[in-house]
C-alpha cells in the first residue's frame, strides 16, 4: 500500500529510496534483483519442468527452457493422475477444496466479525477476560488439540465429512480473527456508534448499516488470510476430511508421494502449480480492492 506522505514524515524512513548517489543506487537495485531472482527461481523451475516431457527432464538441464513445450502434464495432473479414491486427477480435489472453503470462510468471517464488534463497540460483561482467553487460545497449536477435536467431531457426527473440515477451520480461526476484527472496530470513532444508537440502530442495525459499510478493507484482509490458509491447509483436511472427498492439497500429496512406478516430475510440478494458482490469483488481485480513506468525513474536518 502507498504510504500517505503525512504518515511517512512521522516514520523513521529515508524519504527517497534509493538516494541520488549512483553507486548506492546500483547496489540497491542489484541486491533487489538478486533477491527477486532467488525467490522466483523455484517457480521458474516448476513452470518449465511442467511443460517438458519426461525424456527432456531426464537430460538433467533443470534451468533450460522446454524444447517442445506441451501441456500434457497439466492435463494429466488435472484429469488423470492417481490422486486418491477415484484416481481422476486433481479436479475432484479442487471442487472438494471449494466445498470446504466457502462455508468455512463464510462462518469464520460471520462469527468473528460479530464477536469482534461486540467486544469493541459494546459494553460486554467480562469483556476483558474474554479477550484474554481469546489471546491465549490464538496461540495454542492445532496439533495439541487435534485429538480431542477429533473425539468431539465424532461425537457430533462431523468427523469424516467436508463440512466437518469447514467447522474445524472456523473454530481454529475464530480467536485470531476475532482479535483482528476487534482491533479494527475499536478504531471506528465511538461517536458514530453513539449516533447510531440514538438513531435507533440497536446491536444489529448498527452493525449492518454503520459498522459493516466501514469495514470492506478489513474484510478483504481477513478473506485473503482465510482463503489462503484454508486452501493451503493439509493437516485438517487429512485428519478430519472425508476419505472420498479430500481437499486438493491432500490429493497433491497423494500424487507426489506415489511409491510405485516412474516419478513423473512434470506431472508433479503441474499438479503443484495447479494447487497454488488460486491463492496466487487472490494475492495478485487483492491489492486493487482496498479502499483508501473510508472514514473520511465522519469527524470534524
Amino acid at each position: 500500500m502507498k504510504i500517505d506522505p503525512s504518515i511517512r514524515s512521522q516514520m523513521i524512513l529515508p524519504n527517497r529510496v534509493p538516494s541520488k548517489n549512483p553507486v548506492s543506487k546500483t547496489v540497491f537495485y542489484l541486491l533487489l534483483s538478486v533477491f527477486a531472482v532467488l525467490f522466483a527461481m523455484p517457480l521458474y523451475v516448476m513452470i518449465v519442468t511442467s511443460l517438458k516431457s519426461m525424456d527432456e527432464i531426464r537430460m538433467g538441464h533443470i534451468f533450460a527452457l522446454p524444447i517442445t513445450p506441451s501441456f500434457d502434464a497439466w492435463d494429466m495432473a488435472w484429469n488423470k493422475a492417481a490422486s486418491g479414491f477415484d484416481n481422476a486427477g486433481l479436479k475432484s480435489g479442487f471442487w472438494n477444496s471449494v466445498i470446504i472453503l466457502i462455508p468455512s470462510l463464510a462462518m469464520s468471517v460471520a462469527f468473528s466479525s460479530v464477536c469482534g464488534y461486540a467486544l469493541a463497540c459494546w459494553n460486554v460483561k467480562m469483556g476483558n477476560f474474554l479477550l484474554m482467553a481469546l489471546l491465549v487460545c490464538a496461540f495454542i497449536p492445532f496439533q495439541v488439540i487435534m485429538y480431542p477435536l477429533i473425539k468431539m467431531s465424532v461425537a457430533v457426527k462431523l468427523y469424516n465429512t467436508s463440512f466437518g473440515v469447514s467447522v474445524v477451520h472456523t473454530v481454529l480461526a475464530l480467536p485470531i480473527l476475532t482479535m483482528i476484527f476487534k482491533n479494527y472496530f475499536a478504531s471506528i470513532p465511538e461517536e458514530l456508534i453513539k449516533a447510531s444508537r440514538v438513531d435507533g440502530g440497536r446491536f444489529w442495525g448498527t452493525f449492518v448499516y454503520v459498522v459493516l459499510p466501514l469495514s470492506p478493507n478489513i474484510m478483504i484482509v481477513v478473506a485473503i488470510m482465510q482463503i489462503t490458509g484454508i486452501w493451503n491447509d493439509f493437516l485438517v483436511g487429512l485428519t478430519f476430511g472425508n476419505v472420498k472427498a479430500y481437499p486438493m492439497t491432500v490429493n497433491l500429496n497423494n500424487i507426489t508421494q506415489t511409491q510405485t512406478g516412474v516419478r513423473v516430475y512434470n506431472v508433479y510440478m503441474a499438479a503443484a502449480m495447479l494447487t497454488a494458482i488460486p491463492p496466487l490469483l487472490i494475492y495478485f488481485f487483492s491489492g486493487k480492492m482496498f479502499i483508501r480513506g473510508i472514514t473520511a468525513g465522519a469527524l470534524k474536518g
Binding site: R197, Y209, I294, A298, L299
Partner: peptide, 21 residues
C-alpha cells in the same frame, strides 16, 4: 430504556456523520 426509545435526538461534537452515507 435504550436511547432509541427515549424520543431524543443528539448532535455530537465531532458531528459523527456516517461517512459512507
Amino acid at each position: 430504556k435504550d436511547p432509541s426509545d427515549r424520543e431524543i435526538a443528539m448532535v455530537f461534537q465531532s458531528y459523527a456523520l456516517y461517512p459512507t452515507k
